[in-house]
Amino acid sequence: DAEELIELVERALKEGREIILLGVRITSEEAGKWFIEWIRRFL
C-alpha cells in the first residue's frame, strides 16, 4: 500500500540510507519528498 511505501522511504532517508526504486536513486531528503509526492499523486 502507498502509505507503507511512503513510511519506508521517509524512514530510510532519515537514517541516511540510499534508496533505489524503479531504477531511480534517491539519496537526499529533497528527492525523497519529490518521490513521496509522486506516490501520493499516482497511487
Rank of each mutant, 00 (worst) to 15 (best):
V24Q: 03
E15V: 05
L8N: 01
R41G: 13
W34T: 11
V24M: 04
E4S: 12
R17H: 07
I19A: 04
A12L: 07
A2E: 07
G32K: 05
L8G: 01
E7H: 10
K14D: 07
A2H: 09
G32S: 05
S28Y: 06
T27P: 02
E3Y: 15
G32L: 10
I20K: 01
G32C: 05
W38N: 06
R40S: 08
L43F: 15
G23Q: 08
R25G: 08
A2Y: 15
W38C: 14
E10V: 11
R40E: 07
E3L: 14
V24Y: 12
F42Y: 12
K14R: 13
E18F: 09
W34H: 12
G16R: 06
R17E: 05
E29G: 10
L13K: 00
E18P: 09
I6V: 07
L43I: 10
K33P: 03
E4T: 13
I26N: 03
G32E: 04
L13S: 02
I26Y: 05
A12S: 06
I20L: 05
R11K: 13
R40C: 15
T27K: 11
G32N: 04
L5Q: 01
D1F: 14
R25H: 14
E18G: 04
G23I: 08
W34K: 15
R41S: 15
L22M: 09
I19R: 00
L21T: 01
G32W: 08
R40Q: 10
L13R: 02
F42N: 10
L13G: 01
E37K: 08
R25T: 12
A31V: 15
L21V: 14
W34D: 12
I19L: 06
F42A: 08
F35K: 02
I26D: 01
I26S: 02
I6H: 03
R17P: 04
G23V: 11
G32Q: 05
S28T: 12
R25S: 13
E18K: 06
V9G: 00
E29M: 13
I39E: 01
K14T: 07
L5Y: 09
E29F: 11
E10P: 00
E29Y: 14
A31Y: 07
R41Q: 14
D1P: 13
K14V: 06
K33G: 05
E37A: 09
E30T: 08
I39W: 03
I20H: 05
I26L: 04
L43P: 02
I26M: 04
R25A: 13
L5V: 04
E4K: 15
V9C: 10
A2S: 06
L21Y: 03
L43W: 13
R17I: 08
R17Q: 08
D1Y: 15
T27W: 12
I26W: 04
I20P: 00
L21K: 00
A2T: 09
S28F: 07
F35Y: 04
W38Y: 06
W38E: 02
E10K: 13
I36A: 03
E7P: 02
F42S: 05
I26G: 01
I6C: 10
E30N: 06
V24E: 02
A31L: 12
A2Q: 08
F42L: 11
D1K: 15
K14Q: 11
D1Q: 14
D1I: 15
K33I: 07
R11L: 11
R40T: 09
L43H: 07
L8F: 10
A2D: 03
L13V: 12
I20S: 08
R25M: 09
R17S: 06
I39M: 06
F42G: 07
E18Q: 10
A2L: 15
T27D: 15
T27Q: 08
L5M: 08
I36G: 02
F42I: 10
I6E: 03
E3V: 13
K33N: 08
K14S: 12
I20R: 02
G16H: 08
A2N: 06
L13Y: 06
G32R: 04
K33Y: 11
E15R: 03
I20V: 10
L21S: 00
E30A: 14
I26K: 02
L5F: 09
E10Y: 14
D1V: 13
L22C: 15
L21A: 06
F35V: 11
G23P: 04
I20G: 00
E30V: 09
E18V: 09
V9T: 01
G16F: 09
F42W: 15
G32I: 11
R40I: 11
T27I: 09
L8Q: 09
W38V: 04
W38Q: 05
A12K: 02
E10H: 12
L13M: 11
K33C: 09
I6S: 05
A2K: 08
A12D: 00
I6R: 05
I26T: 06
I36S: 02
A2I: 15
V9W: 02
I26Q: 02
L43N: 05
F35A: 03
G23L: 12
L43E: 05
G23S: 07
R41Y: 11
G16V: 04
L43D: 02
E29V: 12
E15F: 07
A31I: 15
I6P: 01
E18R: 07
L22V: 04
E29A: 12
E4P: 05
R11G: 06
I19E: 00
R25N: 10
E4G: 13
I36L: 06
I6K: 04
R11H: 09
R40W: 09
F35M: 07
R17Y: 09
I19K: 01
I6A: 04
V9M: 06
R11Q: 12
I19P: 00
I19D: 00
K33S: 05
L22S: 02
I20E: 11
L22N: 05
V9I: 09
I19C: 06
F35T: 02
L22D: 00
L43K: 03
E3F: 14
A31E: 15
L8M: 12
E3D: 13
E15H: 08
I39G: 01
L13A: 02
F35H: 01
L5P: 00
E37G: 05
W38H: 03
L21I: 13
I39C: 08
S28V: 04
W38K: 03
R11A: 10
E10L: 13
V24I: 14
L8V: 04
E18H: 11
L8A: 06
I20A: 02
A31F: 08
L22P: 00
E15A: 08
I39V: 12
I36D: 02
I6M: 07
L22W: 15
F42E: 05
E10D: 05
G16Y: 04
R25W: 11
R41V: 15
I36M: 05
T27M: 09
E37M: 10
G16K: 09
E7A: 14
E29D: 08
I19T: 00
W38L: 07
D1N: 15
A12Y: 04
E15Q: 07
I6L: 05
E7Q: 13
L21M: 04
L13W: 10
W38M: 06
K33W: 10
L13E: 03
L43S: 06
V9D: 00
E7M: 12
I6F: 05
V24L: 06
K14I: 10
E3Q: 14
L43Q: 08
A12C: 03
K14G: 09
I20Q: 04
I19F: 05
G16C: 11
L43A: 07
W34M: 12
V24T: 03
L22G: 03
V9K: 00
E15M: 08
L21N: 00
K14W: 09
K33H: 11
E18L: 07
G23Y: 13
E4Q: 14
E7K: 14
E10G: 05
W34A: 15
G16Q: 06
L22H: 03
I39L: 14
W38R: 03
I39Q: 01
R40N: 05
R41F: 13
S28K: 01
R17V: 11
L8I: 12
R11I: 11
E10I: 15
G32H: 04
L21E: 01
G32V: 07
W34Q: 14
G16E: 03
F35N: 00
I36Y: 05
R11F: 07
E3I: 13
R25F: 12
V24A: 03
L21F: 05
E7R: 15
E4F: 15
K33D: 05
E37V: 10
A2G: 06
R17D: 02
R17F: 04
S28L: 04
K33F: 09
I36V: 07
F35R: 01
K14N: 06
A31S: 14
I19V: 05
L5N: 00
G23A: 07
E10N: 13
R41H: 12
I19Q: 02
K14P: 02
L22F: 08
L5C: 02
G23H: 09
E7S: 14
I36P: 01
W34N: 12
R41W: 13
E10F: 10
W38A: 05
E29T: 11
R41T: 14
L13Q: 01
S28I: 06
F42H: 13
A12G: 03
A31P: 04
E15Y: 07
F42R: 06
V24R: 01
V9E: 00
G23F: 09
A2R: 09
E30K: 10
R11N: 12
K14L: 14
I26H: 03
A12N: 03
